[in-house]
């Protein structure tokens, strides 16, 4: 079971709701993924179009827990105000905290992130910060009161997979008791399985599923990969070695002579 801020979940896949070819495709992907948590955002509402009202009806019908984000915020102040609006709008203390430093990489502004996290935790939010694999930033986020960390695998939407796997392993080893969710940069089910094999608690996906040729089928593929990776982690993986080691017993090999063994 996955436990985040006192709530337990069977699925270890968190799913974004953006970039699907249609609302129906989103619904089908959510169903096929088995996810229990979907991410959403808030955006300016036009009095004429009232786009958000219809979208909310769609999200409510999914029956998932909602994790609002602060996507697009460039400063701690913007992220804090956005989180406060999200709490009222979605009636949840949960916030996926994003403070973006750079438009090309969409990498987190770790300084603004730590600042905003401290303020929001003090206001009673359950903060899930979108961060990098940086250990010192992670320590500061935990010190600020974050009980979950969401490091990227690679830049958002880049589909590059775990580009700094060693650092992600260090992060896992350093924080054995903090739920760690890989958020961003996953392109393939094998990337997701790799993250889960490292002992990550969950994976947050969006583009890799939403922009697949068949989002529902890809959602199913990711769900299985995440489950497989988790099972492998729990089962205990063997260590890689430099040289071969016969799997078939050597003792009793027919025609065996000592000089064969040297």
């Amino acid at each position: 079971m996955l436990t985040l801020y006192g709530k337990t979940f069977t699925s270890r896949l968190l799913l974004g709701t953006a970039r699907y070819p249609s609302p129906e495709a989103l619904k089908q992907a959510v169903k096929a993924s088995g996810t229990e948590i979907v991410t959403v955002s808030l955006r300016r509402e036009s009095a004429r179009a009232r786009t958000g009202q219809g979208f909310w009806a769609l999200i409510e019908a999914l029956g998932c827990r909602v994790l609002p984000n602060t996507a697009g915020c460039r400063t701690a102040k913007e992220a804090i105000a956005t989180a406060q609006m999200a709490r009222e709008l979605f009636n949840t203390n949960w916030i996926k905290l994003e403070v973006i430093a750079n438009d090309d990489t969409l990498q987190p502004d770790l300084f603004g992130l730590v600042e905003a996290a401290g303020v929001l935790v003090a206001e009673g939010f359950d903060v899930l910060p979108y961060t990098t694999e940086d250990l010192s930033a992670a320590e500061r986020l935990v010190a600020a009161g974050c009980a979950v960390l969401m490091p990227w695998a690679a830049p958002i939407g880049s589909a590059q997979g775990l580009i700094n796997k060693e650092a992600l392993k260090s992060l896992r080893a350093y924080f054995p008791d903090i739920p760690l969710i890989i958020d961003a940069g996953i392109g393939t089910p094998s990337h997701a399985a790799e993250a889960m094999e490292l002992g990550y608690d969950a994976v947050l996906l969006n583009t890799a599923i939403a922009e697949a040729g068949d989002p529902a089928k890809m959602a199913q593929a990711f769900a299985r990969a995440i489950e497989a990776g988790r099972l492998a982690f729990e089962a205990g993986l063997i260590e890689p070695r430099d040289m071969a080691q016969p799997s078939t017993p050597v003792a009793g090999t027919p025609f065996f002579k000592v000089d064969h063994a040297s």
Binding site: G16, T17, A18, R19, Y20, L26, T39, V40, S41, L42, R43, R44, E45, R50, T51, G52, Q53, F55, W56, I59, P68, N69, A71, M85, E88, L89, F90, I156, G157, A184, N206, T207
Partner: peptide
Amino acid sequence: AATARSAMPLTEADEVEIVAPRQGG
């Protein structure tokens, strides 16, 4: 907050944001 809107006076050049739920990652 919704409950504070009626006590929030508007003056010239105020910057008002009105937001609603939307797709997000």
